[in-house]
Every structure is written in C-alpha cells, then in structure tokens.
C-alpha cells in the first residue's frame, strides 16, 4: 500500500506499507523521523504523541492508512528553524525538564498544545493536559516548571504583540 500524507508541512510518500502498521512506525521506520518515541505501543505513555490535523494523538494508535491525506506534525516540526528552538523547547531545557529524554518529544507536543490554548494554566490544568504522558525520570516537578515558564513567556509575547 502507498501512503500520502503531510509531515511537518512537507508532502511525504511511503511505499509498501502494511496497512495494519501504526503511524508511529511509518514516521520512524519509513520516513526517518525518530523524534516520536515507541515506548509502549498501547496508548499508555504518550511518548509517541504527534499532532494529527492539529490535535494531539498517540501515533502508535493510528493505523497508517487512517493518516492518508492527513496532516501530521511531529516534535521535529515544532522549532521554527534549524538553529532555533520553540519557546516550549527552550523552557524544557532551561527548567531541567529533560533527563533521559525519552518522554520529551511526546511531552513537548502535549505541552505545545497546552500553551497554544491556555497561557495561564493552573497546576490542575497542566496535570490534566499532561496526564497521558509518562516520565520515569524527572518526577514531573521540572516539567511543570517548564510548562509554567513556557506559558508565561507565551503570554508576555502575545501581550507585547497585542500592544
């Protein structure tokens, strides 16, 4: 089966797809985008989180064929350029929210989505929004710090842009 989809703004094509394989497998093994991680393949850990048509989803639970014609953004597509990081990524680095880094790509997509929609999240809202992403290293405190930092910077930036 041949698959056509848009990944990080670029049209992509992959051939000889087994229809039952996951979008995660397509991204990692067919398209050479190893950002999204495979840790459980059952929707529990969130390390494979990508945007599918602008909505965060576990790519391990999307059948390849279901992505035909759709728009995917992975962690590789968050930064504005080769040498720049997205503010959410910067905040993760600065806050020390990354240890082994395995959970980070999925958390970045989930956090990116949160900050896009809510620049003043309560702790309860952050916990709720990130409930589908497991981290075995950090104990989450630094991740919460990073999200608060990213949210406040985004808020300030939007305010400046507005005035």
């Amino acid at each position: 089966m041949r698959l056509n989809l848009t990944v990080n703004g670029e049209p992509q094509q992959a051939d000889d797809i087994w229809p039952g394989e996951s979008l995660l497998y397509v991204l990692r093994e067919r398209l050479g985008l190893p950002g999204a991680k495979n840790a459980c393949e059952q929707g529990e850990c969130g390390s494979c989180t990508v945007y599918l048509d602008g909505v965060p989803a576990c790519s391990c639970l999307v059948a390849a064929g279901q992505a035909e014609g759709h728009d995917v953004v992975t962690v590789e597509g968050l930064a504005p350029g080769e040498d720049d990081l997205h503010p959410v990524q910067e905040a993760f680095v600065e806050a020390g929210a990354v240890q082994c880094g395995f959970c980070t790509p999925g958390l970045l997509v989930a956090a990116h989505n949160l900050v896009e929609h809510n620049q003043n999240p309560s702790d309860a809202e952050i916990r709720e929004e990130l409930a589908g992403n497991l981290c075995r290293c950090t104990g989450y405190e630094k991740i919460l710090d990073a999200v608060r930092l990213a949210a406040s910077r985004t808020r300030n930036r939007k305010q400046e842009a507005g005035t």
Binding site: G20, S22, E41, Q42, G43, C58, C60, L61, V62, A63, Q66
Partner: peptide, 14 residues
Amino acid sequence: PIAGGTDVMVELNF
C-alpha cells in the same frame, strides 16, 4: 471496523 483505533490498534500492535 476501526474508528479511533484506541482498542483495535493495541490488538494489532501486539
């Protein structure tokens, strides 16, 4: 049949 795939894909993946 597959809709959201959150049950079906777990079965396939494993």
